[in-house]
Simulated scan of single mutants.
Amino acid sequence: MWTRELLKSNAKQALQGRYWRSFWVCLVLSFVGLGGASASSGSAARQTVDTAGGDNASIYEMFSNIPDNMLAALAVGAFIGAIISICWVLFVLYPLKVGRCRYFMESRQSLTPASTVVSTFRQPYGNPIIVQLLTNLKVFLGFLLLIVPGIYWDYCYTLVPYLLAENPYMSATRAMELSNQMMDGEKWNYFVLQLSFFGWLLLCAFTFGIGGFFLEPYMQATYAEFYAAMRSKALAAGMTTTDELGGFVRHDTF
């Protein structure tokens, strides 16, 4: 039976002698858009959007003074920017998210090369992208359906990236099914585990988010310990086998 204290203790032990490598890995990932604890400016951004959205008349007046040809150029630019952003998320951030899971799972056993993070850019490169896309589309649909289903499904499928890190050939149906089974009875516990970092995140806010960069390796190592506990439970309960989840034997990286 796992406890928050045990997971965090194991995470600290896993980071011994490996913290700074993990720090640089998380720092680089945050710069390309895969942030975690360091992404602390979301509330400020939402407040800015809400403030701007509250003065619709001013916005309409501003756009009404822009020539039509310039508006068309802005619309085309916005469309191209949106396409580029979607492609970046799909073809870069999705594989990196799986690679980050693999890196921290391998780091539990030994010092792991930073290149492990990009090992997912090889065969089967496309499958983890498709699986995560379908999973996130289902979660997004749940948020459209009165929000609550989206929150529930988000916790049901929180282990999908770890499953793909261990078995990148797993289908979307199987990954969602197995994650849901593994999270059965654990959703609230996982929420409390996330909530246990609130104090640290609050302190990070006082450092303008800089402290989040130093907290991120600890959080990711703790979540890796959570997956390890759920994996052991799944194997013991017969939800899966070692043929399907063969462990985190290090793959050759480039």
Rank of each mutant, 00 (worst) to 15 (best):
1 M>T: 11
3 T>D: 06
5 E>F: 14
9 S>G: 14
11 A>G: 01
11 A>R: 08
12 K>C: 10
16 Q>M: 11
16 Q>N: 15
20 W>R: 06
20 W>Y: 06
26 C>G: 05
28 V>I: 14
28 V>N: 00
29 L>S: 02
30 S>P: 00
31 F>K: 03
32 V>N: 12
34 L>P: 02
35 G>V: 08
38 S>R: 01
38 S>D: 10
38 S>M: 08
40 S>G: 15
44 A>V: 13
45 A>N: 06
50 D>T: 14
51 T>H: 13
54 G>S: 15
54 G>C: 06
59 I>Y: 11
64 S>Y: 12
70 M>E: 10
71 L>H: 09
72 A>D: 13
77 G>M: 08
78 A>D: 12
79 F>K: 10
79 F>N: 05
87 C>H: 02
90 L>H: 05
92 V>S: 03
95 P>K: 09
95 P>Q: 10
99 G>S: 05
102 R>D: 00
104 F>D: 01
104 F>T: 07
106 E>K: 04
108 R>V: 08
111 L>G: 10
113 P>T: 02
114 A>S: 13
116 T>E: 02
119 S>N: 00
122 R>H: 13
125 Y>T: 07
125 Y>C: 11
126 G>M: 12
129 I>Q: 05
129 I>K: 01
130 I>Y: 09
130 I>R: 13
131 V>W: 07
140 F>R: 14
141 L>W: 03
142 G>R: 07
143 F>G: 06
144 L>G: 05
154 D>S: 15
159 L>E: 07
159 L>A: 10
159 L>N: 04
164 L>E: 04
164 L>W: 09
166 E>A: 01
166 E>D: 09
166 E>L: 06
169 Y>W: 15
170 M>E: 01
171 S>R: 04
171 S>N: 04
171 S>W: 09
172 A>F: 07
173 T>E: 14
174 R>A: 00
175 A>I: 02
177 E>H: 11
178 L>V: 06
179 S>K: 01
181 Q>K: 15
182 M>Y: 09
184 D>N: 15
185 G>R: 05
186 E>M: 12
190 Y>W: 11
193 L>R: 05
193 L>N: 00
195 L>R: 00
196 S>D: 08
199 G>H: 00
201 L>C: 05
203 L>V: 13
204 C>D: 08
204 C>E: 03
204 C>W: 04
206 F>M: 04
207 T>L: 06
208 F>M: 12
209 G>P: 08
211 G>V: 03
211 G>M: 06
212 G>I: 02
213 F>E: 01
213 F>D: 07
217 P>G: 02
220 Q>F: 13
221 A>E: 02
221 A>I: 06
221 A>P: 11
222 T>K: 01
225 E>Y: 08
225 E>G: 09
226 F>A: 02
229 A>R: 07
230 M>A: 13
232 S>V: 10
235 L>E: 11
236 A>H: 04
236 A>V: 06
238 G>V: 00
239 M>N: 07
245 L>K: 00
247 G>N: 08
250 R>D: 08
